[in-house]
Amino acid sequence: MSSRTSPVSRTITIRRAVARDARRLTRLVRGSGAYQGEYAAAVAGYRVGPDYIEAHRTFVAVGADEQGDRVLGFYSLVLAPPELDLLFVADEAQGRGIGRLLVEHMQAEARAAGLDHVKVVSHVPAEDFYHRVGAVRTGTALANPPAVPWDRPEFEFRIRSE
């Protein structure tokens, strides 16, 4: 588990997701503003289930508020083949460095697992984010209708050993 104080002086903690997080993570995915309009089909009916959380290295970024711990974002790292399968930051938490913090955590997890790279098939609106956090564009994932009727940029994080 790691902690960091965000630019708004709130402590952000990244912890391993547990089965009881599944509903909150599903709501975060389905409610993402990045998947509105033409992109809505990609997350319609999508579910992050307890089985998914147990099968993959899924981590959540949480921040404390008046109601308790609030999920601000999460990611899921698949080890074989190495892929950042999911990365979401809550709409209201974007622009505060949480996505970058999650990527840094993912890279540390990948390094600890002995990986030298991690693939990412990006959502089109997230392409600039992946450039900013150091991912290298490697190609294009072709459309997969009906759920994903558009091509998507493909990236790779190169994991450096320390």
Rank of each mutant, 00 (worst) to 15 (best):
H105S: 12
V118M: 03
R30S: 09
R96W: 14
I12R: 10
D21M: 03
R24Q: 11
T26M: 10
L28H: 04
G95H: 04
L142C: 00
N144P: 00
V124M: 10
A135P: 13
P81G: 05
R96E: 15
A64F: 04
R96L: 15
G114S: 06
S76P: 09
T26A: 09
I98W: 00
L142W: 11
G68H: 12
M106A: 01
A108K: 09
H117T: 13
P82M: 04
L86F: 02
K119W: 01
S122V: 04
R152T: 02
L87N: 07
E154T: 11
S2T: 13
T5H: 10
R10Y: 09
V43H: 04
V124T: 09
I53K: 15
R160F: 07
W150P: 01
S9R: 15
T58F: 12
V62C: 11
R160S: 14
F74W: 15
Y39N: 00
G99C: 05
I53D: 02
E66F: 06
R4I: 06
A17F: 09
T5K: 11
T26G: 09
A126G: 11
A64C: 04
G97T: 09
Q67W: 08
V62T: 14
G33N: 05
Q67E: 00
E104Q: 03
R158W: 07
A55Q: 12
D151M: 06
Q67D: 00
T140I: 12
G99A: 10
M1D: 11
N144F: 04
A141K: 07
Q107K: 12
A90S: 11
Y46G: 05
Q36F: 00
A55P: 15
A135S: 11
L77W: 06
R160P: 03
A42V: 01
I14L: 15
Y46E: 08
D128P: 11
R30N: 13
R30K: 14
R132N: 05
A42L: 03
L102W: 01
R158N: 07
